[in-house]
């Protein structure tokens, strides 16, 4: 239930982010026992590179606290969509925070919004939609893979978000978003191999007063075909973009500074005392607070294509 609102202490059943380091975070469920593969109920022990954690011990602990592991320590954080995106079980390729943030902004999602999403995938983006639209809006999310739809539905329920979301197992390219959703959506988001096939369904699902559309696709040809259909149906403000986030690696670097001036003038042999030699040392080290890119950056995630359905377009 730890996704619904900010809370201060870990309750039984919460998903908790066990934070070990920037590159090592784990989402664990705060329950004292789990059922193993043999069907036996056993004590819930979580293994980390810094030793094991008896999960029962973190129940009741304040979020943000340090918890001891058998060979070190970690911090327990309340999950949110950012941390969840970095720790969730990948069932598909997922979209990350920089793209997601732009999607939420461009789709103008805020409390009260009705959003349609396809596909659900691993639910990374769904969690962001839900944070932004609750407690007064609703997310309708579709996936053509039955097991994924079921897993996502169960996950939203466990995360305390079940009231704000309906998960559908449905092939939207062929079957659309169901007639019940005609004209109800403020925004439609597509992450599909052939988004162009679903654009006419998005058109139907958007409100008569208009709404916003987004398609995320890795290949430019998908965006090209999508835009062709959007244009034909009367969408405007069509705009495609990429958002690429770079991390700055900040560290103090120690760098040599060499002196070459001493080479110009010959030193007199008589000045060669030990003390003098030291002051002539031509190389010193200086510290610099530096910032640089990591060796490898994300070069591409996907093209985001946004469009507006203006008000009062007849949907015949």
């Amino acid at each position: 239930m730890s996704f619904l609102k900010p809370k201060t202490h870990i309750e039984q059943g919460d998903v908790v982010i066990l934070y070990l380091s920037v590159n090592s975070m784990h989402a664990i469920e705060a329950v004292p026992t789990i059922v193993n593969k043999k069907g036996e109920t056993i004590v819930h022990i979580f293994q980390t590179p810094y030793g094991s954690l008896k999960v029962e011990n973190i129940i009741g602990v304040e979020y943000g606290s340090r918890v001891e592991l058998s060979k070190g320590y970690a911090h327990v954080l309340q999950p949110n969509p950012e941390l969840w995106t970095q720790t969730l079980p990948h069932r598909t390729q997922i979209i990350y925070t920089p793209d997601i943030s732009m999607i939420l902004h461009q789709l103008e999602v805020r409390p009260g919004a009705v959003v349609i999403e396809s596909g659900t995938g691993s639910g990374s983006l769904s969690h962001y939609f839900l944070r932004a639209l609750k407690p007064t809006g609703h997310l309708h999310t579709f996936d053509f893979h039955e097991a994924r739809a079921d897993q996502a539905r169960e996950e939203f329920r466990r995360h305390g978000l079940g009231d704000f979301v309906t998960v559908y197992h449905r092939d939207v390219c062929n079957l659309g978003f169901t007639n019940e959703l005609d004209g109800v959506a403020d925004a439609v988001f597509l992450d599909l191999p052939a988004p162009d096939l679903a654009v006419p369904h998005a058109f139907k699902a958007l409100k008569l007063s208009g709404g916003r559309f987004c398609s995320f696709s890795p290949c430019i040809e998908q965006s090209q075909r999508c835009i062709e259909v959007l244009t034909k149906l009367g969408f405007n403000e069509i705009c495609s973009m990429e958002v690429l986030q770079q991390e700055s690696v900040i560290k103090t670097r120690t760098l040599p500074v060499i002196d070459l001036e001493f080479l110009k003038a010959p030193k007199e042999v008589e000045t060669n005392t030990n003390e003098d030699a030291k002051t002539k040392e031509p190389k010193e080290l200086k510290k610099y607070l530096t910032s640089s890119n990591p060796q490898v950056l994300p070069g591409h995630t996907g093209f985001l294509t946004f469009a507006t359905l203006p008000p009062n377009i007849p949907k015949a």
Binding site: S240, V243, Q245, Q246, E247, I250, T252, T305
Partner: peptide
């Protein structure tokens, strides 16, 4: 500020980021 916060131990998972925004003519 990053260095100060890192040294303080009061904040974790510190990142400094910036972005490229590339728009396309399609």
């Amino acid at each position: 500020t990053y260095m100060e916060l890192k040294a303080s131990g009061k904040v974790t998972n510190l990142h400094v980021t910036s972005n490229w925004l590339r728009t396309y003519q399609i």
